[in-house]
Simulated assay, not measured.
Amino acid sequence: MDHPPVLMYSKRSCPFCVRAKALLQSKGVEFEEIDLIIEPERRDEMIRRAGARTVPQIFIGDQPIGGYDELSALERDGRLDQLLAA
C-alpha cells in the first residue's frame, strides 16, 4: 500500500456504500471496512470520529472525507489522487 490508510464505515445494504467501495476498488485503493451490521458497537465510534450518523463515512489517514457524494466530488475534481498520494 503506497497511500495513507483508508477506512470506511459502512453497511452492506447501503447503495452509497457499494458505490464508494466500487470507486475505491476501481482506483486500486486498499481500504479497511467496518461493517456496522457486523460490528454495531462501532457506530458510536463512527459518530464521534465523523460527526455524522449516516454511512458510508470515509477517512483517508485521519482526515474525514464524508460519504460517497464527497468522495465522488473529490474524484471529479482530481483531488482524490492528491489525498491518496499524501
Rank of each mutant, 00 (worst) to 15 (best):
D2E: 10
H3R: 04
H3V: 03
P5D: 11
Y9K: 01
Y9D: 05
S10T: 03
S10Y: 03
K11Q: 12
R12A: 14
S13E: 07
C14I: 00
C14S: 06
P15D: 07
P15Y: 05
F16N: 15
R19G: 10
A20N: 10
A22P: 13
A22T: 12
L24W: 12
Q25T: 15
G28H: 14
F31D: 12
E33G: 03
L36G: 06
I37H: 13
I38T: 14
E39H: 10
E39S: 09
R42W: 09
R43W: 09
R43K: 15
D44K: 14
E45K: 09
M46D: 15
I47T: 14
I47H: 11
R48W: 12
R48F: 13
G51V: 02
G51D: 15
G51N: 13
A52N: 13
A52S: 12
R53S: 14
T54H: 03
I58C: 11
G61W: 11
D62V: 02
P64G: 10
G66Y: 03
G66R: 00
G67I: 00
Y68I: 00
Y68P: 04
Y68T: 04
D69A: 13
E70W: 01
L71C: 04
S72H: 11
L74V: 00
L74K: 01
E75D: 15
G78M: 06
G78S: 07
R79M: 10
L80R: 02
L80W: 02
D81H: 03
Q82D: 15
L83S: 03
L83Q: 07
L84E: 15
A86D: 14
A86T: 13
